[in-house]
Nucleic acid binder design. Structure first.
Lengths: 240, 240
DNA sequence: AACTCTTGTAAACACCGTTCACTGAAACCG
DNA sequence: CGGTTTCAGTGAACGGTGTTTACAAGAGTT
């Protein structure tokens, strides 16, 4: 079972503790509290020892981002699995709600991952969750279709690339979908849905709605209904 | 002319320089570079001297936020004034484009103001610009109307409050609008527009689109068209 | 047993926010 | 005018930070 040497096990254990301590500091006392010395203090070692595990404070923060994304993905998949309905619209709704719930429950993590003017992409970061889900769910929605000519011609190039990204992301999980199923009209609405989903959640987490919303949840659900309608799902289960 | 005493003039001048230096540091080297000592160094004074002007580093950062918002508001108003068309849809488009342009040109400022898990509101901060514009522009759009019963009943309470906020914001500028003009359907779409506008801009600034968008501008314009259609403006000038 | 590799330490450097006792000049007042 | 108050700015200090360096000591290898 434990093929690793004793030293490797200890190292892995320490690294786990480092991540755990960093995460706890972020959650409990904010981004600025995630300090090499604070982490080391938590583990009962000295700060320079952490350089045996990470090249710099910044590298550790990047690792923290990856951990957060992985955890969020797990939470989203869990909530998706807990969704009893096989109806695709219900699944999309479940994931979107899970995203909002997660963000509200983890504001510091959300801010770190989703709202830092960082390196170009981070595509493999959080995106993969949504890519896979979006690809699968849309591929399984064979009913409603949009014509490609609904979307401006200037966008075609980018949307075709995104189409490929979706197909690739899904195929990693063994599911094959024809490109004809995932036409540009749908792709466009997926992007628009991500804009609205992210927009609402970020505004709520950062408290940047133009007025104090006493009960944002129905507003979110209402937006979800509109999103699903736009994307081509029937709305007959909008009360769900 | 200069009613102020010599000392008051010097103080005001120094405060101006502090803000200016802080802003330059934020723009050129990021949030973490906005340091009391760095600012003082720039002015040729020592760090503790800054405590004669601000209670703490945090207070200075808050002031910086306010400055940024004021500047952004000025930029938006300027772009609005530069819009030749009297058509309301064109004005809305101009302001939304100006917002995107400003955010892309000032990513650090945008991140500081719009994406920090801060104090509850900050409503008077950036919001006022949009509130006034939204109120005025919508009030002047007497053509298209939405029925109140389009929006879920659960949202009415919040939307009525926002309605009042809009009316107040506009009345500060001397414009009076009847509450019947600003019905709940429109209000709801204003909020939804803010969600999409903020969502797209934040995703673009933070590089968090699910794929590399080579040319986001047409996508933004396309979204604007959809927003304006949803909000009730005619789309006959969508090519503008 | 001798050797290397790895994980930790302690000391140091330069930077940070913040406090405090102080100086010197501007402003005020009798 | 002279004395006094107000106040912007200083220098030293405290505890905190990221990071580098030289060094110790145990684990693994031969």
């Amino acid at each position: 079972m434990t093929e690793a040497t004793r030293r490797e096990r200890l190292r892995a254990e320490t690294e786990r503790e480092i991540r755990q301590a960093a995460r706890a500091l972020l959650v409990e006392r904010g981004r600025d509290a995630v300090t090499l010395r604070a982490i080391a203090r938590e583990l009962g070692i000295t700060a320079p020892a952490l350089y045996r595990y990470y090249d710099s404070h910044d590298a550790l923060l990047r690792q923290l981002c990856d951990d957060i994304c992985a955890d969020m993905a797990a939470a989203l998949y869990a909530d998706l699995a807990a969704e009893p309905s096989g109806h695709v619209g219900c699944k999309v709704r479940a994931v979107c709600r899970a995203f909002r719930r997660w963000a509200l429950a983890h504001p510091q993590e959300f801010a770190l991952v989703f709202a830092s003017p960082r390196d170009p992409l981070g595509a493999d970061q959080f995106g993969s969750v949504f890519l896979q889900l979006a690809g699968q769910l849309i591929a399984s929605n064979l009913v409603a279709t949009h014509a490609d000519d609904e979307v401006p011609e200037v966008l075609h190039e980018d949307l075709v690339r995104f189409q490929q990204v979706l197909v690739d992301a899904v195929s990693v999980h063994g599911v094959q979908i024809g490109e004809d199923v995932l036409n540009l009209g749908k792709i466009y609405h997926v992007v628009q849905s991500w804009v609205r989903l992210y927009g609402h959640v970020a505004l709520e987490v950062f408290g940047r709605f133009p007025f104090a919303v006493s009960n944002p949840e129905p507003m979110f659900d209402s937006m979800l209904d509109q999103m699903l309608t736009d994307i081509g799902f029937q709305e007959d289960d909008s009360a769900m």
